[in-house]
Design a protein around this nucleic acid. Structure first.
Lengths: 347, 347
DNA sequence: AATCTTAATGTAAGCGCTTACATTAAGATC
DNA sequence: GATCTTAATGTAAGCGCTTACATTAAGATT
C-alpha cells in the first residue's frame, strides 16, 4: 500500500504538499505539481478515504435509507441520487431496514441506522414507505441534516420532498369521469399509510364534486402486491356486476386486476377500465398497457440529493445550490386501459 | 461527539479497556464491563467506524459493483448479500458503473472502482452483465479478493459463481418439445453476451437432438426490454404463420411478446405458447402467467457473499465457512403460457 | 515464603491523512 | 537597501480508534 508519505518522499516534497496538490492544486506551483503527479502515477497511489475522513472530520458521504431494496422506488432514487452526489464529490451509502416489509424489526432498524451514523454520513435521505412514524421522527430529530422523500414532517417542511397524493386521486377520478364512468370500484392500499389515505380522499372528493358517491362496498383493500390485486378483483366481480372501472392505488395491484379480469373473461377496456398509480415499469408490460398516475420519482430524488448536499457538513453555509423544489404534482399517463364510454347510453 | 476517551474517563478506565469491552468483552472483568457499558449508555457513544478502520487496518466492508442499479438482478443480490454480510459484522458498499447500459463510460467505471478501493473494501462482488471483459479481467487481477456472479473467468474459477445457461436453454427446449411443439421461434439477447449465446446453443442442441432444426429465420434479436420483445414478435408474426411457440431469453421480452400477441388477437397459449427466462417478478404479473426458466439468484448471491467473506482480510486463514456452491442449475417454473399440443394432430 | 502463571488493565505508538501555523524566498514599495 | 507582502512549502499536531507490550495483582505451585 502506497501512502502519501511514499509519494512525498519520491517527489522530494512534504506530505502537506502532496495533500495540497490533490485537494487544492491551485495552491501549489506547477513545477512541483508535476513532480507530485509523476510520483503518484509511478507509485499507483490511491487515496485512503477513511484516513481522509478522520483527519478532515468530514466523510463526504450521504446515506440512503430505505425500507426494502425491492421497493419499486428504490432503484431510480438510488440511481439519480448517486449521480448527483458523485457530481459533487460525494459518496452514497445505502442501507435497508428490512428485506421484506414484515422483516422490519426494530433490531434491523437500529443496525441500519447505526451502520449509517457510525460511518459518519453527513446527511441521510430517508425513503419513506413503511418506516413507522415514531422511528421517522426520532431519526429526524437525531439527525438534523436528514431529508425525507415521500412524507411531510411538521416543523421540518424544508427537509421534506413530497408528492401530492390527494391531487393524484383527484386526477384519477377526473379522468374516469371524463371518460364517462360512473360505477367505479377502488382498490386501495393500507389505511395506515398516509399516501394511500390521501389518494383515496382525493378520489372520493372529486367524485363527490360531481355528485357521485363512492360507496363503502365499492372499496377494496390490498397490500400493493400483484396477488392482492387479484384477490380484490375477485371480490369486485362477486360484489356487483355493474362496475365499469377500477382505480387501483398502485400498478402492481392493477396488473393483478388485469390478470384476474382476463381469467374471468372480462374484456379490458371494453367491459372494464382500469387506472393505476405510480407509472412503474409494469404499466408498460401488461396488456392492455396501463393508464397510470405518474409520480416524478427521479425529479424527487434529484431534489432530495440537492437538499442533502445543502445540509451536509462540507457544503453548509456555502449555499451553493438554490433551494430545490419540494412539492411535486401528479401527471396522468394515458395508455390503453381506460375506455371512453358512450355517455348518452350511460347517463 | 462523544469519543472513546470520553467514555473511558467517565467509566474511570483506560481507552484500551473500553475498546476491549466493545470488541472482545470476554477479555474484561464483568464489573468493569458494567461500568463501561453504563458510561456508553450515558454518553450515547457511537463508534467511529472510520477511525476503527484506520487503526485496525481492516474496513469490514465489501463492495458490490453492478452495471446499473435497475438491473432486475441487482435488488435481490443486494438484499441477500447485505443480509449475509451483516450477520458477520460486515458492511456493504454499492456502486454502479453507469446509470443506463449505454452510460457505462470508462470514466464512470473508474470512478466506481476508485470509490470502492479508496474506501478500503476488503473484497468486491462483481455483478456481471454488460461489464466488458477487459475491465473485468483488470479488476480481477488488481483485486485478488474479488468475486464475480454470472461469469466464469479462466484461472480463477474458485472466485466465480455461475449459472448453467446452456442447460437453461436445453430445459426450455425440452419443455416445449414435451408439450408437442415443433415450430418454434426464439427471441434472443445480444450476441455479445455469453449467457445469451449459451442459452441459444443449449436450446438449439436440444432441439437438434430431437431432429428439429432451429432455422436462422426463426431467430430474432432483442435487447432485453419489453419493447424489443414487442418488435421481435411483430417480425415473428410477419415471417411465418405456423409457429406454435416462442422461447424468449428473458421475461421482459416475453412480456412484450405477450402484449403484441394480444394486440394481434393471437390467443395465448392456445394459438401461441411462450416460455421466458429468469422467472422475474413480471412473470407473475402478466396474463397468462409466464412459464419461465428460473435462475436461483438469491442462492447465487448467498454463495458470492460467503466467498467474499472467505477472501476478505479479517476472515482470511480462518476458513470459518465451507466452500460454497459455485455452479447453479436452472429450474423450470411452469405457469400458464405453454399449451400441451395434441401431438397426434401435430405429428 | 518464594516463584511462577495467568488474567485484567494500562501505556503509548501508530493507522494515513489534513491543516493551523511557521518558515522561507522573492517581488513590490518606499 | 530596508521593509513589507505574498505565495509556496514545510513542520507537526492531531482525528478516534486498535493493539503490542508493559505492568500489576492474585492465585497456583513448589
Amino acid at each position: 500500500m502506497t501512502t502519501l508519505e511514499n509519494v512525498a518522499k519520491l517527489a522530494g516534497v512534504s506530505t502537506a504538499t502532496v495533500s495540497r496538490t490533490l485537494n487544492t492544486p491551485e495552491q501549489v506551483e506547477s513545477t512541483t505539481r508535476a513532480k507530485v503527479t509523476d510520483a503518484i502515477a509511478k507509485t499507483g497511489y490511491k487515496r485512503n478515504e477513511m484516513a481522509r475522513t478522520l483527519a478532515s472530520q468530514s466523510s463526504r458521504t450521504i446515506g440512503l435509507l430505505t425500507d426494502t431494496f425491492s421497493s419499486s422506488y428504490f432503484s431510480p432514487i438510488l440511481e439519480i441520487t448517486t449521480k448527483i452526489l458523485h457530481q459533487h464529490g460525494y459518496f452514497t451509502l445505502v442501507e435497508a431496514m428490512g428485506s421484506t416489509p414484515s422483516t422490519t424489526s426494530s433490531e434491523t432498524q437500529n443496525r441500519a441506522w447505526h451502520s449509517l451514523t457510525s460511518r459518519q454520513v453527513e446527511s441521510v435521505i430517508l425513503l419513506s414507505g413503511l418506516i413507522n412514524d415514531d422511528l421517522l421522527r426520532r431519526m429526524f430529530s437525531e439527525f438534523p441534516s436528514s431529508v425525507i422523500i415521500g412524507q411531510t414532517i411538521k416543523g421540518a417542511e424544508d427537509r421534506c420532498v413530497s408528492f401530492d397524493h390527494y391531487k393524484g386521486g383527484q386526477l384519477a377520478a377526473e379522468h374516469l369521469l371524463k371518460k364517462g364512468h360512473r360505477q367505479i370500484a377502488m382498490i386501495k392500499g393500507s389505511s395506515y399509510r398516509e399516501d394511500s389515505v390521501e389518494r383515496a380522499q382525493g378520489f372520493k372528493d372529486e367524485l363527490a364534486a360531481n355528485n357521485i358517491k363512492l360507496d363503502a362496498d365499492a372499496i377494496f383493500e390490498g397490500d400493493y402486491t400483484v396477488d392482492s390485486g387479484r384477490a380484490a378483483t375477485k371480490k369486485i366481480l362477486k360484489k356487483r356486476d355493474n362496475f365499469t372501472a377500477i382505480f387501483s392505488h398502485n400498478d402492481d395491484m392493477a396488473a393483478g386486476a388485469i390478470s384476474e379480469l382476463h381469467i374471468a373473461g372480462v374484456d379490458i377496456p371494453n367491459k372494464m377500465s382500469i387506472i393505476g398509480f405510480d407509472n412503474s415499469a409494469i404499466a408498460q408490460a401488461v396488456h392492455p398497457q396501463l393508464t397510470s398516475i405518474s409520480q416524478p420519482i427521479k425529479a424527487m430524488g434529484h431534489s432530495a440529493a440537492i437538499l442533502a448536499l445543502n445540509l451536509s457538513k462540507s457544503q453548509r453555509n456555502k449555499n451553493e445550490f438554490e433551494q430545490p423544489q419540494l412539492r411535486f404534482s401528479p401527471e396522468i399517463i394515458e395508455r390503453h386501459s381506460v375506455k371512453q364510454l358512450n355517455t348518452v347510453a350511460e347517463q
